[in-house]
Amino acid sequence: MNKTFKLYGLIFIIVMAVLALLELSKSDVTDWRKNFDVNEKSPFGLYIFSKEANHLLNDKVKRTDLSPYDFYKTQKLKPHNILIIESKLDSESWNKIFENVEKGSDVMVISDFFHQSISDSLGFSLSTISYEDFNLLLLTDNKFAADSLKLDKLPSGKGFELISKDHEILGKEESDSKMANFIKVNHGKGHLYLHSEPLILTNYYLLKPGNEKYVQDVFSYLPDRETVWFSGDNKNVAESRSPLRFILANPGLRYAWWLLLAGLLLFIIFNAKRKQRIVPIIEPKKNKSVEFVKSIGNLYLQEGDFHDMMAKKAQYFLNRVRMDLLIDTKDLDEKFIHLLHLKTGKSVEKIKEATELIKKGQDPYASVMQSDLIKMNKLLDEILL
């Protein structure tokens, strides 16, 4: 084997090793793209909504990947609900939807895009009329006055303008009373409910406490009946950003790549084993934590400073109450005793007695005996046992 071949082989091994390290050490980057994919757990995916859709719509959801045009060519349903989320439908699909709405079906469309021909036929226009860093979405019905949803991350600011007087405004944006983002359009025997902000259904906003109430209010306008969800048009497949995406995307090349890395690893292991020096035995350091605690305990016992020991025990106990039980310990009053009783299940009398001893330990002028320390230590250990 000549020197040139050895040099090329060494360079090849180094390059493969560097690529492998780059692949294994790359960190996950949060994908903030608005993909609206029912299978995506990224902030702006619909994974959580997809899991909760059945519960939200009373277990009467029928999902389909077909377009409305293909679906209704073979399906003849009685009046039902139609759900469309951020899907760009063709005109033939819209015609099928309008036919069903005229017969008594209701459709909920949640999208920041409506083709101009559709918006013209329904009597509205959609445009960006809010440039705030955040939007607070409200509903106009008084019974939903307490429910709102704040869009603080990449709001589209889309809203309906030039709305026909025959349409009903169901939701607005707080900072702009003229900005309607949720409207009701009557069409034949049925209705179209149009919402211009699909972000309300994404994982990022549904995970925030209270936002689910706003979403429930929006869907409460749909009657309690079967809902057909056309979920097949809003899937975006994210392209891998890895420099090895071509190799990893092909099964044959992917297996060859991992086989190469495994062979390289075995070569390194066996080669290193042959040349490895004797590793000296290093005794592990002994854990002397128990001895340290005993020494500190003996020191306090010899000093006889029971008051300081009670104060430290009380401080440790209150810190555990704050961190583990999430109870405010600023005021050791009846409210504190009641909350501690509810969360620990211990008797109120025992907690009151322990609280009095804690206050005694915190009082620098109180007279403390050894029996007080022993009694408080026993009570506090029983409460948090």
Rank of each mutant, 00 (worst) to 15 (best):
K26E: 14
E132S: 15
S156D: 11
P243M: 03
F160T: 09
Q362A: 07
Q302H: 10
S127W: 12
G159Q: 09
D59W: 02
N319M: 12
G345F: 05
L325I: 01
Q116T: 13
D166S: 12
I84V: 15
Q370V: 04
V109M: 12
S367I: 14
S93L: 04
T30D: 13
E132T: 12
H80Y: 05
T344L: 03
Y221V: 09
I351R: 05
V228K: 00
Q362L: 15
L206T: 04
D305W: 00
V218N: 07
N35R: 02
S347I: 01
L126W: 11
Q75C: 03
L122G: 13
D65I: 08
V290Y: 12
H307F: 00
P209I: 09
W229P: 02
G159P: 00
S121Y: 01
A145L: 10
K62C: 01
Y300R: 07
D166K: 09
K143S: 14
A53S: 14
L10C: 14
K288E: 15
S130D: 13
E99M: 08
T64C: 05
L89G: 05
I82R: 01
W258A: 03
L56G: 02
F306T: 14
S67Y: 05
S240R: 08
P68N: 08
N236Q: 10
N100W: 02
K6G: 03
S93T: 10
V38H: 07
P43T: 12
S295H: 07
W94G: 03
S93V: 07
K34N: 05
L253S: 13
E102W: 10
T74P: 04
